[in-house]
Structures are given as C-alpha cells and as structure tokens.
Simulated assay, not measured.
Amino acid sequence: MFLPGIHAETDTAVLLQFIRENPLGILITNIKSSQQDFLQCTHVPFVLDLPDESGESAPQGRLRAHIAKQNPQVKAMIEAVDNQPPNILELDDDVLVLVNGKYDHYVTPKFYVETKPDTGKVVPTWNYAAVQIYGKLSLYYDSKTPETGAFLEKQLHDLSEHTERSIMGYTGGDRPQPWKVADAPERYIELMQRNVVGIEIRINKIEGKFKMSQEKRNGDRDGVVKGFASLGGETGEAISALVNVRGELHDLKRQ
C-alpha cells in the first residue's frame, strides 16, 4: 500500500478499531503449488483479538477466521505444509490481509471550488480508507483434534456475537435478541465445522491510511465536504464527515 505521510494513520488503536468496525477482509497468500494458483485471495470476516487479549505470543494482536476446506487457497496451504502434524499447520511466509473502509467514492474536480476556477489544475481522484496487516498464519485443519475443535467453537461463537451485535445492532432489550450458534441444531453445526478450517494470524505489522482530501487547500476541502453532503444518502454524508474530521486532524498536526 502506498502510504504518503499526509494520508497515513500511525495510531495502532485507530487501526485496530477500524478492523473491528470493518470485519470483512481479504486474505492474500503467495504459495508455490503444483495445482493451485501462486497468488490466492479470499474474502472473509475476521474476529480481532486485541493485544491485551492475545498474550505474549501475539503482542500486536491476532486475527481469527474460518474458511471452506475446499477453498483453493486452503488446498495450497495444505500442500505447502504437508509434512507437519495435522492439528495445527503454520505457513513459513507472512500473509497479507487487506481491510477496506465501508465508505469510498469518486471525487469530481468540480468539488475543488478554490483551485478549479483559479488555475484549472485539478484532476479526479478517489477517496477511501484501508488497513493492511502482515502476520504469521496458523491453520486449524482437522476438526476432530481437540485444538481445532476448541478453536472453531470459539471462532464461530465470537464472530456471530460480534456481527450480530455490532453490525446488525441485535442487542436485546428494545432490540431483537442476537442469533446464537446454539440456535442451530448441534448436529448441523458439527457438520459445518468439518467442512471449514480455522485461520489464526499473529499480527506482525499493521498499517493504514485515510485518503480523504487532507492534502487539498482549505477552500477545495470545504468544497469536497459540501459536495458530498449535497449528494445525500449514507455514503455522501459519511464521506463528507470523514473529509471534515480528517482535514481538522491534519490542520492540528501542522500546528
């Protein structure tokens, strides 16, 4: 990821919160395989274990997920580590996870109300936010082993709990109760677990950016804020607010 200083976010707490709010990530691997593509990716929702929840073995935190056993990416992983015991497999090389923010949008030069009429030296761009994570991946492959069984049970519970409550807002009380894994037949869940593998990534490096017009002149930035506000809708209003907040943070740092 290209990280110009003006767009880079260096506060780890902010980046971790970003992952919590945007659990769907893209798991990217490069594994030499006799049958699968060298580069593989899978879209998958992640559970984040914060550093204070992860212990000394993962001082920067962990990502957890589960994906289908028949996924070509999993097959490439198995091929790469076929000489290890079947309960927990570890890849030698780092993997990459990319998490995109919920809101992104094309930015028309017409929003640059200061520079466009002044010099005309403006071009379109795209505003977005993203975080990338590098880390070591462990694969919990055999659901019959105690380690994998326990991992998958916790993973399924934690993911449904997080997404039901934070994404859907099902918190009980005046809101509906969240769906729980226990609501499904036990035999059905056992069958599902046999067909997935657990993914655990110990975070080694985390980086991110908010490209939200911080580099623009104040007049142009105000034009972007008003321009997106005028678009209306959830995305327009959200990006307008993000441009305003990120612009203010940039101005404070300059002071």
Rank of each mutant, 00 (worst) to 15 (best):
Val74Trp: 02
Val74Tyr: 03
Lys75Trp: 00
Lys75Ala: 07
Lys75Met: 09
Ala76Cys: 06
Ala76Ser: 08
Met77Asp: 10
Met77Gln: 08
Ile78Val: 15
Ile78Gln: 09
Ile78Asp: 07
Ala80Phe: 12
Asp82Lys: 14
Asp82Cys: 09
Asp82Val: 00
Asn83Ser: 12
Pro85Ser: 15
Pro86Cys: 02
Asn87Tyr: 15
Asn87Ala: 14
Ile88Asn: 00
Leu89Ala: 02
Leu89Ile: 06
Leu91Lys: 09
Leu91Ala: 08
Leu91Val: 11
Leu91Ser: 05
Asp93Trp: 03
Val95Lys: 06
Leu96Lys: 02
Val97Ser: 12
Leu98Pro: 00
Leu98Gln: 13
Val99Glu: 05
Val99Phe: 15
Asn100His: 13
Asn100Asp: 09
Tyr103Leu: 03
Asp104Arg: 13
His105Trp: 12
His105Arg: 13
Tyr106Ala: 07
Tyr106His: 14
Val107Arg: 04
Thr108Leu: 04
Thr108Asp: 12
Pro109Phe: 12
Lys110Pro: 00
Phe111Thr: 03
Phe111Cys: 01
Glu114Lys: 09
Glu114Gly: 00
Thr115Tyr: 03
Thr115Leu: 01
Thr115Ile: 02
Pro117Ile: 06
Pro117Lys: 09
Asp118Val: 04
Asp118Gly: 06
Asp118Trp: 14
Asp118Lys: 15
Thr119Val: 13
Gly120Ser: 07
Lys121His: 14
Lys121Cys: 04
Lys121Asn: 14
Lys121Tyr: 14
Val122Ala: 13
Val123Arg: 06
Val123Gln: 05
Pro124Glu: 13
Thr125Ala: 00
Thr125Phe: 04
Trp126Val: 08
Trp126Lys: 11
Trp126Phe: 13
Trp126Glu: 09
Tyr128Glu: 07
Tyr128Val: 12
Ala130Asp: 00
Ala130Trp: 00
Ala130Met: 10
Ala130His: 03
Val131Met: 01
Gln132Arg: 05
Gln132Leu: 09
Gln132Ile: 15
Ile133Trp: 04
Tyr134Pro: 02
Lys136His: 11
Lys136Gly: 03
Leu137His: 02
Ser138Tyr: 12
Leu139Arg: 05
Tyr141Cys: 01
Tyr141Thr: 00
Tyr141Arg: 03
Tyr141Val: 03
Asp142Thr: 12
Lys144Tyr: 09
Lys144Arg: 14
Thr145Glu: 01
Thr145Arg: 01
Pro146Ile: 12
Pro146Asp: 05
Thr148Ser: 08
Ala150Phe: 08
Leu152Ala: 05
Leu152Gln: 03
Leu152Tyr: 01
Leu152Ser: 04
Leu152Val: 04
Glu153Met: 06
Lys154Pro: 00
Gln155Gly: 01
His157Trp: 02
His157Met: 01
His157Val: 14
Asp158Asn: 11
Asp158Lys: 10
Asp158Pro: 00
Ser160Ile: 10
Glu161Met: 10
Glu161Leu: 13
His162Ile: 02
Thr163Ile: 11
Thr163Phe: 09
Thr163Cys: 09
Glu164Val: 05
Ser166Gln: 10
Met168Arg: 08
Met168Thr: 00
Met168Asp: 05
Gly169Met: 08
Gly169Leu: 07
Gly169Asp: 08
Gly169Cys: 11
